[in-house]
Write a protein that binds this DNA or RNA. Structure first.
Length: 438
RNA sequence: GUGGGUGUAGCUCAACGGUUAGAGUGUCGGGUUGUGGCCCCGAAGGCUGUGGGUUCGAAUCCCAUCACUCACCCCA
């Protein structure tokens, strides 16, 4: 049997509505924050990522789907969104048009990792970037967005009033005037204790030295005692920057903790960095993460263009929503047309056309079945009403409308069928508490 | 890339090395010729992931392989 690629998952109809809920809500929230959608290609020249993300990151070194196309160019499936967006902005000179660029995008990303809970090879991100402003308020607004979307989904899905189990951690990675001093000292420190570190950390101390602080082994924790800490190197400007972010977060009542050890895996980050972490996700607890990357545009061959952004992991947010929600949203139908025989089906077609024009979801199976089977099918499609149309109805020129929730039914004359149906549906929609209905 | 767990009906799961591999649920049909959910009856549905081995006999034990899954690593 043919199967999907490892780590690539089908989103089936039973799940797709929850995806739509999340995507719709994200789009709505972005609109309210004044963001515009941008859609960049899934495939880019490999150089976009090697220059953007950094050649010595794990993502670029061993996780990218890279291949040579028929022209001999090296192409890669995007492992994240920011580099591609930066490329598009610079290519189209968007930064010269507007003083500030506020964009978001939704879509699949690709990394060749070993799949586990909350981690797939094709996964989806909700991503946003603010380009132009160096203000800490931009950092704050990015965090605010991540917070708003994740918490908004909680409010939308969970009925309870208690807070979701989410932790916002922030930190500053320093800027080009202070970050390098720390890195230098840390490298020397690590070099001197090389033998005391675990093999992983020996490797890390070269590739991403800040990561050694994440190691859980006692051996490494001991070896790191007295190591130069980033917070002691941060320059006054960076301290002030982080403070303004904190003040803004306080102003809108977003709780957070400072985690001086919080780092990012991608090279382009500087100054503010943050993660939104859940305890309900297993080992991959980060739902959203991001930070500032003032040097990225230059690194990609563009002008100096400060930027800050974040990404939400859709699958992870979906896992949370599934845990929060008492029930999954299901597809529902307003009217299921239970027409028996060809004549009845033909008669119903013009009505169906008008109803659909009016935004009513109408379904009519083409199979000739008994009424019993048709009503069963109506149930399966979560229909609110069944419109019964058979021999006797055609003869009497009256259709039977059955309310499938209250089990009552009424006869409606063909002549007044449409206006009456629309009327009844309007009332039914108003009293319906099915928030998930599309 | 490394390690652990699990692979049996569409789905969720049973079955001591021993008859024809079962149950719940779902599907289809009937009870009720045109009235759904509840009830009753019936039917279909399986190369027990795949390949090898041990054994008189393997879903069951062993080996390999693949898939799924969780964790390490890394990250959203």
């Amino acid at each position: 049997m043919l199967t999907a690629i490892r780590g690539f998952k089908d989103i089936l109809p039973q799940n797709s509505l929850l995806w739509a809920v999340i995507e719709d809500f994200a789009r709505l929230t972005f609109r309210s924050f004044g963001f515009q959608e941008i859609r960049t290609p899934i495939l880019e020249k490999t150089e976009v990522f090697t220059r953007g993300i950094g050649e010595h990151t794990d993502i670029v070194e061993k996780e990218m789907y890279t291949f040579t196309d028929r022209n001999g160019d090296s192409l890669s499936l995007r492992p994240e969104a920011t580099a591609g967006i930066l490329r598009a902005v610079l290519e189209h000179n968007l930064h010269k048009e507007a003083g500030q660029i506020r964009v978001f995008t939704l879509g699949p990303m690709f990394r060749h990792e070993r799949p586990q809970k909350g981690r797939l090879r094709q996964f989806h991100q909700i991503d946003m970037e603010i380009l132009g402003p160096a203000s800490p308020l931009a950092d704050f607004e990015v965090i605010w967005m991540a917070w708003s979307i994740v918490n908004g989904i909680y409010e939308k899905t969970a009925q309870g009033s208690e807070r979701p189990d989410l932790r916002l951690e922030i930190n500053s990675l320093g800027c080009p005037s202070c970050k390098p001093h720390h890195r230098e000292d840390l490298l020397i420190f690590l070099e001197n204790r090389r033998e005391q570190l675990c093999p992983d950390c020996q490797r890390r101390s070269l590739s991403n030295p800040l990561r050694v602080f994440d190691c859980k082994l006692e051996q490494c924790k001991n070896a790191l005692k007295g190591a130069p800490l980033l917070r002691n190197y941060i320059c006054p400007d960076c301290v002030e920057h982080l403070k303004l972010v904190q003040d803004a977060l306080h102003a809108v009542n977003i709780p957070f903790v400072i985690n001086p050890l919080l780092v990012r895996g991608l090279d382009y980050y500087s100054r503010t960095t943050f993660e939104l972490i859940s305890n309900e996700l297993g080992a991959q607890g980060t739902v959203a993460a991001g930070g500032r990357y003032d040097g990225l545009a230059e690194q990609m061959g563009g002008p100096h263009l400060p930027g800050v952004g974040m990404a939400i992991g859709c699958e992870r947010l979906l896992l949370l929503a599934e845990q929060w929600a008492e029930q999954q949203p299901v597809y529902a139908t307003d009217i299921f047309v239970a027409a028996m025989g060809d004549k009845a089906m033909q008669t119903a077609l013009p009505w169906i056309k008008e109803l659909r024009k009016n935004g009513v979801s109408v379904l009519m199976p083409y199979e000739s079945k008994g009424l019993k089977a048709l009503l069963k099918a109506a149930d399966r499609h979560n229909a609110t009403f069944a419109l019964i149309l058979g021999e006797s109805e055609l003869q009497g020129r009256k259709a039977v409308l059955k309310d499938l929730h209250s089990h009552t039914q009424t006869e409606i004359a063909f002549e007044s069928l449409l206006p009456e149906l629309l009327d009844i549906l309007k009332i039914a929609k108003r009293t319906s508490n099915n928030a998930w209905k599309p």
